[in-house]
Design a protein around this nucleic acid. Sequence first.
DNA 1: ATTAGGG
DNA 2: CCCTAAT
Length: 570
Amino acid sequence: MVEGDGRLVPATDDELMEVEDFLEDDKTEMHDVADSGQTVGHISDEGASSEKTQLESTEGLLKLENSEADAGKLNARPEEIIPSSAPILNDNDINQSGTTVECPKPLEKTIENVSSTSAIPTSSSSKPDFSKLNGEICLDKLSIRELHEVFKATFGRETTVKDKQWLKRRIAMGLTNSCDVSTTTFTIKDNKLVTKGEEECNKNVDGSFTQDPEVGATDVNSKGSPASHGSQMEDHQTASGKKLRSHSLELDSGSEHLHIEQGAAKRIRKPTRRYIEELSEVESKDYSQRLITSPKNAVPGQTSPKSSVRPVRNVPSEGRIVVTRLDSLGGSGVQVPYVSRVRRSRPRKNVMALMKFNPSSMGMAAKLVKKALGVHNSQTDDNKRDKVLKKRSSAEQIQQPFFSEVEKDRQRSVMGRFERGENLGLTQADSSGDNSDDNVVTVPTAKGGMRRKHHRAWTLVEVMKLVEGVSKCGAGRWSEIKRLAFSSYSYRTSVDLKDKWRNLLKASFAQTPPDDGLNSRKPTSMPIPESILLQVRELAEMNAQVPTSISSTKPIMGSRNLHETRSGYL
DNA sequence: ATTAGGG
DNA sequence: CCCTAAT
């Protein structure tokens, strides 16, 4: 890395690792992607007709995204050109993927299904009716607006896409935690995608629970998994404007499942399960905003006016495009590879302690800064990886008015964030795939403090996973549940699960005020579907967790009368 | 390290 | 969510 004034700035260990990851990736996994891209051919041929509808929709999507994307957006995101040629087909598992993955969808039928069912007027209630027959959710009958709500609930973010097909697919994928959603009828039951008439495509859709936890989702992305092929491809495609986009997903999933099925030995690093989320991340609009707003997150007073977010394209002889970004590091522009710079592991406690108790002494901080800039080249391997972050944190610590806030509070708002690997805006976008330790927006408060830490709204999928987990392991075994159902969600500690369950319990036994017509629109992030609350209640009773009343009323009942059930006393 | 409960 | 206490 070369600094603006010409000095050489060594990359941190972390960054080096990242780059290595990337390179290794290119070597090992790129083929898969490329191959997938080819084998898609089969599928789209076979499902040509139904594919067409999808193409139309995705085309619309492309237009939409492109229109609302300013020039900067397209460039401002890391990308690599994936060599569209050079597939190496010597692995026969790949060949198989072409044939086994095929999920020939009966076209006329499915298409008809969609159009006819979606025509049916939704129930007159203002909210989407999730509580179809025990836990069954029929997306086909939801309006766009309702789909939007479900989408938000499912993925925890808004969407502007108005394409029903697309929404349904995404939601189905989310709810089912699978990408095997190639069907055109979207009914989810018990976390499984119900295909009307066809059982073929949804063999393994229910994910984590049925399959061996060790093999399945266990630790796919906890390390620096590069993972996001899907999004990378999409990025590229979006940027270049053409090509169909809908398939990277299905194909990727196809090969993933394949690999899982036939021996995990083949590929050490499987694509993250989380890529579903990442796909949505790409289409999410705040993506670009985060990038654009980022400059103001830099160190106050040291922000170099023009540097922060100007992406620079380097075109090495390889032909592969590597995007670097100009980063204001310590006031001087430093070009760094556009990879994640989030810390991987929590800082060692003693380090934090040192900084904590020397807020005013420049010594430590200065040293760190120097180190970060490579002035003092000798360093313990152990320390290297945290350089950048530490430097930053020191800067911030220095600015602290010296225990201005309540000790506990400060500990929570400052230390807490660091210990969690949040870097206060240094990470604008992490496309390297392991967004596990995500950037969590911290909202500055009027009185200077940064409040509202990392809040990750619980999505419907997560809640469903939690419920299912409790049903399998029982309430209280949260570490178990976490390992089984939340292995792919690195956030969400067992404590979080416990808390959420507590909340669910509360919610499930709380009466639903008949709707305050006023503000029932979107502000409240997704009222938990009755179907889920029902499950919660059942489980709660089975575990004698019931608050203090009703115990003989509704252990087992059909599914219909949910309202009567809890309408009673509380 | 995991749980439970309070804030 | 965060923290503390008790296992």
